[in-house]
Amino acid sequence: MDINWFTVIAQILNFLILVWLLKKFLYKPILNAVNEREKKITDELKHADIQKADAQSAQDDFKKKNHDFDAHKKALLDKAVDDVRIEKQHLMDAAKKDAKALGSKLDKAYNEQQEQNSKEVSQNIQGQVFSITRKALADIASIGLEEQSVAAFIKNLKAASKEEKQQFIDAFTPNSSTILIKSAFDLPAKQQDELTTSINEVLSSKTSLTFKTDPQLISGIELSTNGYTMGWSFSEYLNALQKTISQDIKANVTEQPKILEHVNS
């Protein structure tokens, strides 16, 4: 159990040599490798941080762009919807306008057609009625009836109002005018004299009359001078009736569009 001092010294030297050699071959290389790796890891972590920051930045950019894109898309969509709405409104207005115009045109055409039809029907009916009447009256017309017509004419002439008489006097020019008496049948001399006397009484002068036969009168007599006409005949009654009926039909036809317009609105 003694201490061998040579061994002690040798062991101290051995230990110091071992310290030096291990430092050179073990600790330094290992610590250097560890430090280098740590540095590398630190660098890589820094690099990763930078990349992360870049990625974050890129992500933020992307998010912003995406947001902008969405906003732009929404704006475009809204604008498109508005445009479509406006265009739809325009088209609807135009369509309504066209439809209205077409409706008006149709109404007008319908009215015209109706008017035309009414007119044609009225004219046909009128023509039929008057031709029947005319035929019937012509069938019953005779000399006796003609005499009654002259008598009725003279009676009317005498019973005429002052204004009517004055119109007849004003129309008549004594020197240059001739008075034409139209009748459906040839008037006998007696009736011609009666007529001449009555007219001269009205004119207060002696006038020669020209007598003419006109079967169109059917039955009756007509006096005309310088555009003034006065008479009593079936034809005149029929003409007056025809005029009145025509006016009534016309009034009825013009009333109808107003009713149609009211129905459309």
Binding site: N14, I17, L18, L21, L22, F25, L26, P29, I30, N32, A33, E36, R37, K40, I41
Partner: peptide, 19 residues
């Protein structure tokens, strides 16, 4: 000593600094 030094020298010959 020889064992330690030779082992250390051999094992630290190809040290890597990778992960």
């Amino acid at each position: 000593m020889l064992f330690l030094i030779i082992s250390a020298a051999l094992l630290t010959q190809n040290l890597k600094t990778d992960i």
